[in-house]
């Protein structure tokens, strides 16, 4: 199958990969909004070619990618603090994971998310499907390629991948990641080296959920352990803050957090009447490292 991709995108991907910056090739048209050399830019921007797998490989080979092996951290969940830290920083506790997720937490409709990530090699894959959405993500050779399978053309965007080694921040102190100034809260996120946003945001690196549901440790408790897909998980049960809960229509919730990796394997959110309004369940999971 031939796929159209702008030469501009290919050129920019290679260039941006070389200099280590990101690139998005949008399917949309542009406006003359910036004061750069348009004659020069036109030679980059204004041609489209047919891209087949051979060409894509050629583009990928232009990138310079270094993915150093990363040491995994070890942390045993013993209390709320370690449980919160492991969920918030799950990427420190695994390099490879694959699985399949079913959830309604993207827009209320039922979605399936298949994923496979190897942060040792930098390779990753994700397939997100619902009745009106079908998107695949391929991460290879330092480039993330997103394909919208429901569009016949203009359906690809690309950007350089994020690696673990690119983030040199210190995230040992969870207290420094949430602060309040002039009454406005700030939440400090890490860049995502899985390069798989949908799988991350509900399961394998759920920073938003960790901040939203667990940063106030008065609202939840560890209620025990459960076997989940033959994995040991810690069970968290809690209630939401009024503002957060109202937005999500969740009054109370249950989480299953994988003991070894900190990955969120299951989530159930219930409204004030006890009706299940939000769910995420992992139906297949493996983790080799």
């Amino acid at each position: 199958m031939n796929i159209k991709l702008t030469i501009a995108a290919a050129t920019a991907i290679a260039l941006s990969s070389f200099i280590g910056v990101s690139m998005l090739s949008s399917k949309n048209t542009s406006t003359d909004f910036h004061n750069y050399d348009h004659a020069q830019a036109a030679s980059v921007n204004n041609e489209t070619a047919t891209l087949n797998s051979e060409t894509l490989s050629e583009v990928s080979s232009l990138s310079i990618t270094e993915v150093p092996q990363t040491q995994l951290k070890e942390l045993e969940i013993t209390d709320k603090d370690t449980c919160y830290h492991k969920l918030l920083n799950s990427i420190d506790y695994y390099n490879t994971a694959s699985g399949k997720i079913e959830t309604n937490m993207l827009n209320g409709n039922d979605f399936s998310i298949e994923y496979n990530v190897d942060m040792n090699t930098g390779n990753a894959y994700q397939h997100v499907v619902s009745f009106d959405f079908d998107e695949e993500v391929f991460c290879e050779n330092g480039i993330v390629t997103i394909v919208n399978n429901l569009l016949q053309s203009d359906n690809i965007s690309s950007s350089p991948a994020v690696t673990k080694s690119a983030d040199t921040g210190n995230y040992d102190d969870d207290g420094k990641r949430v602060d309040c100034e002039n009454g406005i809260m700030s939440y400090h996120y890490r860049l995502n080296p899985t390069n798989l946003h949908y799988a991350s945001t509900v399961s394998i690196f759920p920073q938003e959920m960790a901040f939203g549901f667990l940063s106030d440790k008065e609202l939840w408790n560890i209620s025990g352990k459960e076997n989940y897909l033959n994995r040991e998980t810690f069970v968290i049960e809690g209630s939401t803050s009024p503002e957060y809960g109202a937005k999500l229509n969740i009054n109370n919730f249950k989480m299953n957090i994988d003991s070894q990796t900190g990955i969120l394997l299951g989530f159930e959110g219930y409204d004030a009447s006890g009706v299940l309004t939000n769910y995420m369940k992992t139906v297949e999971f493996s983790n080799a490292q």
Binding site: H34, Q40, M105, S159, L191
Partner: peptide
């Protein structure tokens, strides 16, 4: 000389709690 993205990040606006969502990094 030409416009070029330096860095990017994704955010789940539904699940992110209200306030500032902060990201950081280094441009080489």
């Amino acid at each position: 000389y030409i416009t070029m993205p330096c860095h990017y990040f994704h955010l789940n606006q539904n699940l992110a709690p209200n306030g500032f969502s902060v990201f950081s990094g280094t441009m080489p």
